[in-house]
């Protein structure tokens, strides 16, 4: 196996890397590249941070009670026998 990846190869695989969907052996070759390549490292960091920010800014909010009550009500008037 060719133990070398170009930057373009890395770009394609970064999400798989983040999702842990890459085989250990391929992962190791990726890591060798990233360690030496500042661009790919920055790309990995910013891509990971994009996901972290997306989660942090969309934390779960409490459902307003009135919305749940409305659902109960709508179902009761439709289906109550």
């Amino acid at each position: 196996m060719d133990r070398y990846f170009s930057c373009k190869d890395i770009y394609r695989m970064l999400s798989g890397y983040i999702d842990d969907e890459i085989d250990t052996m391929v992962r190791e070759i990726m890591e060798e590249h990233i360690k030496e390549c500042e661009r790919c490292l920055s790309l990995l960091h910013t891509l990971e941070k994009t996901i972290v920010f997306s989660r942090e800014t969309h934390r779960r909010k409490k459902v307003p009670e009135r919305f749940v009550k409305k659902v109960y009500y709508e179902i009761r008037i439709r289906y109550k026998r």
């Binding site: 373009k8 790309l43 960091h45 990971e48 941070k49």
Partner: peptide
């Protein structure tokens, strides 16, 4: 196009 884009680490 990533290859031709500047990549800044803003983390």
């Amino acid at each position: 196009n990533l290859y031709n884009t500047a990549i800044n680490d803003w983390t």
